[in-house]
Amino acid sequence: MTMPFYVAPEQVMKDRAEYAQKGIARGRALVATISDAGVLIVAENPSRTLHKISEIYDRVAFAGVGKYNEFDQLRVAGVRHADTKGFAYSREDVDARSLANLYAQYLGQVFTHEMKPLEVEILVAELGVDGKSDQLYHIAYEGTITDEPRFVVLGGDAETIKNRFAELDQSIQSFEFTLKSAVAALAGPERTVPATDLEVGILEDRGSRRTFTRLDDARVSELLS
């Protein structure tokens, strides 16, 4: 009779974390930040149709990096959660915090109980209403949730980009300046990222109920020039 090998739980967790981190590091990064106009999310994404940044609800946006099919599944789950909640209660009752907690629980559950952890890192952003500040929730592959006051970087090489961005953008600035800083931080000193390789999503109050907009290439290059 063969006995299964004993593997220490520490080792299991370490292996899973390494596996997930490797998957995430392969993908390109994303910066989410708060400007004076609202929430700004900038991702390096050459695809026009497979989005990293999307609308969840009136004032809530989602962004993900890592394995597309995995974070897209999370995005759809988020839309379902938000729409169901808004339909059952009221549109005002949908908030980013509860959604972020839900994601954290799910990711934590998958990380500890499933064979393969999800190779994703996600962000839930909410545009503040009635003087409440904007919120950015960063949820890692193992379910760790952090509430970032000003900006957050997700994906490969996040630390370097984070330092670059922190240097460029030290307080809440104008929308244009923030966008330029985010793009510069993503690109680094050696290269430039063309507008066609960028995906930019914003949450901004324009008098309508839905605040999410994905900027098109023309608008992005206009803002960057």
Binding site: H51, S54, E55, I56, V76, V79, R80, D83, G86, F87
Partner: peptide, 16 residues
């Protein structure tokens, strides 16, 4: 009407 509005927006968000 509420269900219909939600349905249209839900479709739009899920399908893109």
């Amino acid at each position: 009407v509420r269900l219909f509005q939600t349905q249209l927006e839900h479709y739009e968000k899920v399908e893109g």
